[in-house]
């Protein structure tokens, strides 16, 4: 099959779409602010309700949504290359389930502790995610090397254990805690404030910086660990970097947004189906594509059922799933005709 869509075209389209999407998202919300008035509001700093809603509620949320989408998609792309499995995502190294377990534990066991206030839950989730990744990494390590297959299986095993832990916590929790746990797992950015955004940047930025320049190395790694070594890639160091970068990026994303996944799985895959697998284009494109998808999902989540809020996890799955299926079916048809 020859692919009709060149890398550069898709990347440029995505890149051009991002600022447009950001503007559109800034003009939408439960609180009516006309899109054309936004520059005036921001420029003149009219100290009104609209200014405060825009600046303190909407903008941090939009900003965080784009970042979270980027983090999920980028780590998904990197992990897929590392595991040489297009169905891999951050879930496989345990970061999501670990964060989920810690968040559930926080809600069920420490929810009343007000000293940490609003910071308790995201901190717990982040720590849980990172701790689980560390555990997976240590357990998969055999005499200095970390075979990818062992890493994968260890991740799956720890996911199952975390799942059991979450189940136990759900069983032990009362109705209201149950509700909190469920909502956390569905994800959402409703509680976003600027301080939360800054806090999320602390792990997100190093994570993204670790992952973003890996294009060529990931290409080699996608051929195989041995081939990557033969091509001069320090494989062990690269693996460490991918796992650490993903843990930081996804840990930060999940801590800020709750149980969101799927973006990490679907965005790199979509790009591959459209253009191909070259990670030098795949990484930047999925970073932007992830931001777009998550921004779209979050905007829908805060506007579709206003004044209520639709959990964003439902929307990413709802938006990404059918599109993903369509691409797969199209790909299958083309493969038949090729």
């Amino acid at each position: 099959m020859t692919r009709a869509v060149p890398y550069k075209l898709v990347f440029l389209i995505l890149l051009a779409a991002l600022p447009i999407a950001l503007c559109v998202a800034a003009g939408m919300g439960a609180y009516p602010i006309a899109l054309f008035r936004i520059p005036a509001i921001l420029w003149d700093r009219i100290e009104g309700e609209g200014y405060r809603v825009l600046l303190y509620i909407r903008l941090p949320r939009i900003f965080l949504a784009a970042l979270v989408g980027t983090a999920l998609a980028l780590s998904g792309a990197a992990l897929q290359s590392m595991f040489r499995n297009p169905l891999a995502d951050s879930g496989l190294i345990g970061v999501s389930s670990g964060a989920s377990l810690a968040a559930s534990a926080w809600i069920a066991l420490a929810g009343a502790d007000s000293r940490l206030g609003l910071w308790g839950l995201p901190t717990a989730a982040f720590a849980g995610g990172l701790a689980t990744v560390w555990l997976v990494w240590r357990m998969a390590r055999t005499s200095g090397a970390t075979p990818t297959a062992t890493l994968l299986l260890t991740g799956i095993a720890l996911n199952a254990i975390a799942g059991a832990g979450i189940g136990l916590l759900i069983y032990c929790s009362d109705e209201e805690e149950l509700r909190s746990i469920t909502f956390w797992q569905l994800g959402g950015l409703n509680g976003t404030t600027w301080p939360l955004v800054w806090a999320a940047l602390i792990p997100l930025v190093p994570g993204l910086v670790l992952l973003a320049p890996l294009g060529r190395a990931l290409n080699a790694l996608a051929l195989g660990d041995r081939e990557a070594y033969h091509l001069g890639i320090p494989v062990a160091a690269l693996q460490r970097r991918i796992v650490l970068g993903s843990a930081l990026a996804v840990g930060g994303a999940v801590a800020a947004a709750g149980g969101v996944g799927f973006v990490g799985l679907v965005v790199p895959h979509m790009f591959r189906l459209l253009c191909g697998a070259d990670n030098r284009w795949l990484l930047p494109s999925t970073a932007v594509g992830g931001a777009l998808l998550f921004l779209g999902a979050d905007t829908a989540s805060r506007t579709l059922v206003q004044p209520a809020e639709l959990p964003v996890g439902i929307l990413t799955a709802l938006a990404g799933g059918p599109f993903f299926l369509w691409l797969l079916l199209r790909h299958k048809r083309e493969a038949l005709h090729a």
Binding site: R3, Q80, S81, R84, N85, P86, N219, A222, L223, G224, R226, E227, H230, R272, L273, G276, A277, D278
Partner: peptide
């Protein structure tokens, strides 16, 4: 040095 190893994984649509 370059190596031509026995088999390669082909999970991704590289050309």
């Amino acid at each position: 040095r370059a190596c031509l190893a026995q088999d390669l994984s082909a999970s991704f649509p590289f050309t």
